[in-house]
Design a binder for these strands. Structure first.
Lengths: 337, 337
DNA sequence: TCCAACCCTGACACCGGTGTCATAATGTCG
DNA sequence: CGACATTATGACACCGGTGTCAGGGTTGGA
């Protein structure tokens, strides 16, 4: 397999390599005849431009970085799927970079990443999407970025989110409509902006339906299965026991279900359980979890697409979109007896 | 932030850029005095070589590709974690590339990937690790590759695996030791080499303990939760009902558990269930699944490390290692009553 | 003392593209 | 029809590194 470079194409087509480059980049000022001649040679020689050489000349890498610090493997893969789809559409590559949110090392970690990989842009996924220190750093370095599932909107950035507050409202309302009044709530990780949003939706549903908010029904979790177990213990020990539990994600909801089952409680007859995210586990356990499905892939794909657009044309407008979340009812919630 | 290039370093240190390059690459034939002078300037200017320029000159990308077609998100993230660890140690980047095993498009898909990304090497994860068509293709193109969790060993490649057959043997033996004799088995996806290995281990344990193999106790699955449901239905309908089920992975085992629970069967009192892989779900459900843990991260990290070594020095020896799998007992298996 | 061998160093071409600018060819308008 | 704008094209430097090779300086052995 001989290497096909821009020079061989140029020689074969009888034009200069600059003209070949023009055709490659769809630049104007190339006659139709020349353009077609070159395109034909592309096919004949099966030419693919070398992205590395391009990158060197244009000082770009055609690589987008995706950073995350998220315990949910299913969430991460969904993010990756969406990001990859967008990258492939645009001939970009995706670099994944897990890192710790905590610790002073973060900024220098990211700085090193940027220096050594020359990324063209960064996708921030929760909990980084709303992490001000990082966002400010990127802004000061003029590194393009896009935020996925952020709570706070900014005027001048790319941000695609789903409506966590509304989702939490709907699922709480669903429980209320089933007759539940004592609905426990398990919060997520305090570093995630979704945590506050979901809590807000829960409270709004209560107040909309005239149910008094009860501090004692709220537990602090951190999205991990393990934290769900701890919270579940406190909740199931309450007297009177709440008739329903809304956990801020499915892993914690699964933990509640596990503990309830261990204690011989029937779900949903004795207690209803709702989650959030529609993680695979929500349908892999019995009873299946009522939950909220977010379009994670779609969000990420849109964010990355816009990010790449922005890289190509920095004049591009900011982009702020909120997608809808959807209630999915399964067997874990039922009419109160 | 001004750009720091090899030229600025050279000017600042009063040497030629070739000498700077020598220091960068730890080449011999640089006097200690010069080397230290240059290293000092590196620090002062905070210089990081441009990987793209390096790549162009050396015709490499410093990127490893990881291809997969695997429904288990937890498996994929574990693979990624291991691969990333190795990449970071060696200043490489990881490109992830999900693709369909099936279809004629595969080879051209991979070919396009290689052409457009100029990957330095490829990590093959199940089910690609034993996919002969692809391996042969890579060999013919002289693309370095490493195989993770392959069943078939070859003399001339890098391959890190774990002992699936032995793991299956041990977990089956565990069930036998608990008094079970009618042990149903759910096979995995036929394209995965692990499928056959695990089946072999199951049969070896039976024969070692003098239990006759019964064809009717074997169901065809494909590693997906859904296939587990179907298989579980057939198994639970058998009369007499088997006292134990060994599913080839945890998702299918979880499906058996779900169906059994739906049918009011007590696990493990009425029926024992065992899985494979130690996926997160194995401990997120109640009762927790007895399963086999494989060192997936470790396997992948070793494979990628060796792959990168091989890229740097193609004379490098082949590398074939088998790591041990480990039995983890949880609540889903118990002494037969 | 002289020459070979070896160590250090830098000049220069090169990797495969893109940016700048000059120039030739063509079109437009008064 | 001449002056000028516009389009099409190529020559050449450049991006930031590495490979090749030649040359000067040391060392050591005959």
């Amino acid at each position: 397999m001989k290497k096909v470079t821009i020079n061989s194409v140029a020689g074969y087509a009888g034009v200069s390599k600059k003209t070949v480059s023009r055709v490659l980049n769809n630049e104007p000022n190339v006659s139709d005849a020349t353009r077609e001649k070159v395109l034909k040679v592309f096919k004949e020689l099966d030419y693919t431009p070398n992205p590395i050489a391009r990158g060197l000349a244009q000082n770009r890498s055609f690589i987008i970085g995706c950073i995350y610090d998220n315990p949910s493997k299913s969430y991460i893969t969904r993010v990756q799927t969406g990001a990859l789809a967008a990258c492939q559409q645009n001939n970009y590559n995706l670099l994944i970079h897990p890192c710790d949110l905590r610790g002073d090392a973060l900024i220098s970690n990211i700085e090193h990443l940027l220096q050594s990989s020359r990324l063209d842009g960064l996708v921030l996924t929760p909990p980084f999407s709303d992490f001000k220190v990082l966002v400010d750093f990127l802004k000061s370095k003029k590194i393009p970025y896009a935020r996925v599932a952020s709570a706070v909107l900014e005027d001048d950035s790319i941000s695609v989110r789903s409506n966590d507050e509304q989702g939490a409202f709907e699922i709480t309302e669903h429980l209320i409509n089933l007759g539940h009044k004592a609905i426990a709530f398990i919060k997520g990780h305090p570093d995630h902006s979704a945590t506050e949003q979901r809590f807000k939706g829960y409270r709004r549903a209560l107040s909309t339906h005239g149910i008094e908010f009860n501090e004692r029904l709220v537990e602090e979790g951190n999205f991990s299965y393990h934290s769900g177990v701890d919270s579940a213990r406190s909740i199931l020990d309450l007297t009177p026991r709440p008739t329903a539990v809304f956990a801020s994600n499915d892993y914690m909801a699964a933990a509640v279900l596990k503990l309830a089952t261990q204690r011989q409680l029937k779900v949903p007859d004795d207690i209803s359980i709702a989650g959030f995210d529609n993680a695979p586990i929500a349908r892999h356990i019995w009873p299946g979890l009522t939950t909220i499905a977010q379009p994670v892939e779609e969000m990420t794909q849109q964010a990355v697409n816009k990010l790449i657009e922005h890289i190509g044309d920095p004049q591009e407008q900011p982009y702020q979109v909120t997608l809808e979340a959807r209630l999915i009812t399964r067997e874990s919630t039922a009419q109160i007896k």
